[in-house]
Design a protein around this nucleic acid. Structure first.
Length: 255
DNA sequence: ATGGCTTGAGTGTCAAGA
């Protein structure tokens, strides 16, 4: 099966591009982040017309996550169990025998911000919860916008970014905690082009100059990573008019 | 040069993203 993750930065604005991408690639599941719309405004009819089911958890203006799938999603569960969070950042569902977690990790804004403290607390709760989920679901995939560039090679200019949010040591430590649980960064299971990124700033021609960060990831449980045949970043949608600032990440899992 | 784009809110111009 093919699974993918894409931060669309407003599903309302990006819906035509999402539908085009689904028609072109026909993934079995697509995890979306930053819907920026309430559940009442989720484009159910358009998604169904494209041949997909949808599980979603949204809110006005900010955040919001969804899982689109070709077969009906089962055991849909929003949020991190036991962690009370008013921000809609997580949704999980079973699709074709795989447990999918779609996550939009907080940005953190800057190291001296309350949002940064929220990000680290959130990541601690997330990891604790995923440790339990891993026991319950041996075939577990965690896809999303992690807002963490795990290593310097995931950053276009590590010197300029040193100590900044998205690359700071506590954030990278939180990411490593996930890999220590047994999750594999599927992108790094395979040889990849140099300077591979998944996000580029809208400003300063960031994409044309490839001034990017790799912050969107597909993490796989040991059982799934053994069955992973490929992982890549699709740069094409970033070339669209009115693109999202993020590109989709796609992984292929052998049945 | 703490700027630079984009979105959503809402009709001024600002918060938030990364």
């Amino acid at each position: 099966m093919r699974i993918a993750s894409w931060n669309v930065n407003s599903l309302k604005v990006r819906l035509p591009q999402v539908l085009d991408w689904l028609a072109q690639h026909r993934p079995d599941a697509l995890c979306l982040q930053e819907l920026k719309l309430e559940d009442a405004n989720f484009p159910v009819a358009a998604v169904e017309a494209a041949g997909y089911y949808a599980a979603y958890s949204g809110q006005k203006t900010y955040n919001g996550v969804a899982i689109l799938s070709r077969t009906p999603p089962a055991n849909i569960a929003p949020g991190i169990a036991g962690y009370d969070d008013p921000q809609r950042r997580v949704i999980s569902a079973d699709v074709d025998g795989v447990r999918l977690v779609c996550a939009y990790v907080p940005n953190g804004q800057s190291l001296d911000s309350d949002k940064y403290r929220y990000k680290l607390a959130w990541l601690a709760a997330f990891a604790g919860w995923l440790e339990q989920e891993l026991v319950r679901h041996p075939r577990l995939a965690v896809l999303g916008d992690y807002n963490i560039a795990p290593e310097d090679r995931d950053v276009h200019d590590p010197k300029a970014w040193e100590g900044q949010v998205l690359v700071s040591p506590p954030e990278r430590e939180a990411f490593r905690r996930l890999t220590k649980l047994g999750f594999s960064d599927s992108f790094r299971q395979f040889e990849q082009p140099e300077k591979s990124y998944s996000w580029w700033d809208y400003r300063m021609n960031g994409f044309k100059r490839n001034l990017g960060l790799r912050i969107d990831h597909i993490l796989l449980s040991p059982e799934l990573s053994a069955d992973c045949a490929s992982c890549s970043i699709d740069l094409e949608p970033r070339r669209n008019e009115r693109p999202s600032d993020h590109a989709p990440v796609v992984a292929e899992i052998r049945a």
